[in-house]
Amino acid sequence: MLYQPWPWYVSGPLIAIIMAVLILLGKKFGMSSNLETFCSVGGAGKFTDYFKIDVKSKRWNLLVVLGSVFGGFLGAHVLSPNPAVDITAETVAKLQGLGFESAGKAYLPTELFSLEALSQPMVWIILLVAGVLVGFGTRYAGGCTSGHAISGLSNLQRPSLIAVIGFFIGGLIMNHLLFPLIFGS
């Protein structure tokens, strides 16, 4: 059971409990603010006061990041004998149409996330642009999936609802309109 993929009705409530424990520790559940802390640690305060923060006050969240790296290692290498993600047949067919032969057979598409894929300059560009959009977007919106979709909506915050609607507008545009242009040819 532990070694199978965990069902949504187990995983979702566990995520909520993680959020509640962080609140009970006097903290909050938000993973993207760490990106700003990385900038501050890297000396971005020289460019703008925005990054002149007390890094020590963010240390707890960096420890959560450190733990999540370890958790990812355990999840992948200890708790998952079979990495294949059992997505629906329709999704597999659509992805094969876009050239993703690894659909249904891997945890991440090998066409983007294998070392062999990095021999293609286009893959570097895709990964880098995707990262910049996530990092810029999440700080502009003041939160990501954890900060807005889970923490903000759990606290019934209207701004978080606007942000989550934005997440879906962007995601649907990328998935339905841009994917055929990026991967279809």
């Binding site: 642009v129 995707a130 990262g131 910049v132 959009l133 996530v134 990092g135 810029f136 977007g137 999440t138 700080r139 502009y140 919106a141 003041g142 990501c144 999936t145 807005h148 606007i162 942000a163 989550v164 609607i165 934005g166 997440f167 879906f168 507008i169 962007g170 995601g171 649907l172 545009i173 990328m174 998935n175 841009l178 994917f179």
Partner: peptide
């Protein structure tokens, strides 16, 4: 910000 994030997330 949400739309830009969503584009990158997808």
């Amino acid at each position: 910000g949400g739309i830009l994030f969503g584009l990158g997330w997808a």
